[in-house]
Design a protein around this nucleic acid. Sequence first.
DNA 1: AACAGAATGTAGCGACTGCTACAATAGTTG
DNA 2: CAACTATTGTAGCAGTCGCTACATTCTGTT
Lengths: 183, 183
Amino acid sequence: MPDTAPKPKMSRESLLPKLASHVLEHGLGGASLRPLARAAGTSDRMLIYHFGNKRQLVIDVLNHIAQQYADALDAAVGEGRAESRKATVARILAETRKPEMERFLVLWWEIVAGSARDLPGYREAAEAVMDRMLDWLEKEMPADDPDPRGGARYLLTLIEGAQMLSVVGRPRIARDGLASSDL
Amino acid sequence: MPDTAPKPKMSRESLLPKLASHVLEHGLGGASLRPLARAAGTSDRMLIYHFGNKRQLVIDVLNHIAQQYADALDAAVGEGRAESRKATVARILAETRKPEMERFLVLWWEIVAGSARDLPGYREAAEAVMDRMLDWLEKEMPADDPDPRGGARYLLTLIEGAQMLSVVGRPRIARDGLASSDL
DNA sequence: AACAGAATGTAGCGACTGCTACAATAGTTG
DNA sequence: CAACTATTGTAGCAGTCGCTACATTCTGTT
């Protein structure tokens, strides 16, 4: 007779993916222990047991998500570089439009907001994400770019501005703005 | 003998400024009826009475704040235009660094986050703010700019990207990016 | 003054919040 | 097997949430 309950032996690490997934779907602010626990197949009691308190849980989940996103970016880096800055921008915009990334993009602005309000853990997660994004962009810059370092920073600024404008319902502002730039 | 309680005769409109001020200070997500009421000198009971429910209150407060911000921007438009795009960017960055604006900037990212999650009222407020910001920028563009319309959109994209990077603790990325641009 | 409707206070409901006390079980180690 | 620790379940606490029932007062009209 097989085990009826396979005794999953839950740990902080085994919980994090499921918690992260729930947070990606439902956001961080509104997330409370009991729904989180349900999504992870445990009880609020055990979440506190494993993470100490909710604050620490949020911090750990944020770190996990940042890491997850960074890994996804790394996996998405293609072999060859783009041919132009314009192609680089197009590439990253296409990459972030993938549905798996879209969930993250929605959460991203919540991370930015938490960072602006100095909530614990948010700033660190945001920095980790932006740093990795910058790495990714530098690797993706055209081989013959005159200033790949500055250019990557320039493009990141433009890209993030464009994505914000899209998210607030004004994608055309960004599109027209990019079209009018010298890209 | 003077009135001990001057009977302020509160209305939706007379409440909104105080509510907006409290929201600017403490954020929207965490704001609950009782603290809001205390800040406005009423009771939760009366907030529901005047606004119907919390959702509508949030929507109204958001509209009020967006209007307030738009007015502040309008008031800040100088007489003469800037001499260069670079000066335009410098002008708006200086304007938004004023302490009164800074409170708004913190809230702004919460509005963006709510917009990304499609919370009621957030998208509309964000659109109103961005549209007015764009107006302001167009008026502030250099008189001899070859493409003031596209240029304003380009600058808005850059500026918002830069402000986001600042808020998440990476102002240097934006600064270096802007320095490397052709502004 | 009589009344009607708007505005407000008091009290509380049921649901949910993060978290904990206490007890039971499971797994490891001697 | 015995002792011990790690893990989990049950139950609940004190506080907050949005909101409402009910009664009262206040204001303007007739």
